[in-house]
Computed example of a mutant assay.
Amino acid sequence: MPLHHNSDYSIGKTSSIDIRLLSIFVTVVESGGFTQAQEPLNIALSSISTYIQDLETRLGIKLCNRGRGGFSLTENGQVVYAEACKLFASVDQFNANVASLNGKLTGELKIGILDNSTMSPNTRVQDVIHRFSAQHPDVHIIIKVLSSDEIEDELSAGTLHLGIGLFSDAGKHLRVIHRFPISVDLFCGYQSPLFTEDTIDIEAIQEAGYAKGCYAPDMKSPLAQSLPPATASSYLSEGLAFLILSGRYIGFLPRRYAANWVSNKEMRTLPQELFSHEVQLALVVRKGEHVGPVLHTFLESFAAFTASD
């Protein structure tokens, strides 16, 4: 989408003031609004508003809507945000590349993970981070907990370096570095009528409320055909667990994630021979992206770590 700007303003005239204002703008967007941005920016609400107005004046365009309807970006604001993210990513990459010339890694490593993806015993990313951060303490590691769709979107936008999630079509835009199998079961909560049943069959399952989440089987699979239509959903495990514990819904969760609730008799595993299955988490990067020294070194560390298993 083209950026419509005032003819008196040129991107070629970008100054240190513009960089500062763009940084504030990016923080506002990523915080979800002016009020939420006060803490990370450590400046007053009135000052944030003034800075954004200054940026809009310098660019000659309106970037965002604010008021009773809440905070939202205009179409031009979305373009400026995306370009600003690219700008700051390029600056970070420049700093990292220059620092690497003397053998020192600096900069940021941004990782997006699906919540509770560490529940797989085969996910070794936390161990790689342990070794990597010990060897390269000046690299600032940022972890964002997101849905798989959000991880894919942020990888495409260049605001993440790598991600861990469930990607049904990973080969199209993403390069898979490694896969981690994770065991998934179907659960009911202690308030569900199924919790005290001695025998549970397909008919009983089909009469229950069903909450769909990211660990559900593929809709085309035979397993999915035995499930009732979803009447609730959450694509983060914490939300799905909340629905299951209400007793009104059954749903799929990683086995290790639900283990404490099962041992405390707050959840029950429904017949594993009927409903248990395995999904494949994937560690991915954006396909075709230039891999800078920080990401390259991290991926090398990951390859060395997994090869030693």
Rank of each mutant, 00 (worst) to 15 (best):
H173C: 02
K144C: 05
R66N: 02
V26I: 13
L45N: 13
H290W: 02
E289T: 14
S16P: 07
C64Y: 09
S47P: 01
L21A: 01
D138T: 10
V91M: 10
D185Y: 15
E273Y: 11
I200G: 05
S234I: 00
T159H: 00
F132S: 13
I142Q: 15
S46N: 13
V80Y: 09
T35W: 11
L155F: 02
R20K: 06
C214N: 08
D149G: 08
A216R: 06
S226F: 12
L295V: 13
D18T: 05
F132I: 12
Q36W: 01
E238P: 01
A208H: 01
P181A: 08
G239P: 04
W261G: 11
E39S: 11
A303C: 01
H173D: 02
A232Q: 07
H4E: 10
K110Y: 03
Y190M: 15
G67D: 12
F275K: 02
L299H: 01
H173M: 09
S147L: 00
L155W: 03
T231N: 05
F71C: 10
F195H: 08
F132A: 07
P271C: 02
S168W: 07
T50F: 11
Y235A: 02
V91H: 05
A259F: 07
S147G: 09
G213W: 05
T199M: 08
I205A: 01
C64K: 04
S31Q: 03
L253K: 06
D149A: 14
N6H: 15
A224T: 01
T57N: 11
F71T: 02
R58Q: 13
V284P: 00
N65Q: 11
Q78E: 15
R255P: 00
A89F: 06
S15R: 12
A208S: 12
S72F: 04
F252L: 02
F94R: 09
K172L: 12
Y249D: 00
L21T: 07
G67E: 06
D127Q: 09
S192G: 04
L55P: 14
F132C: 11
I52Q: 12
E197P: 00
G288K: 14
L63R: 04
L114Y: 03
E300I: 10
C214V: 15
V279P: 00
H290S: 15
H290F: 07
F302C: 00
Q225E: 11
D127A: 10
F71I: 12
T106Q: 12
S148W: 04
F195M: 04
S23K: 13
S46R: 11
D169S: 12
Q78N: 10
L166M: 02
H4P: 02
F71N: 11
Q126W: 13
T306N: 08
Q206G: 14
T35I: 15
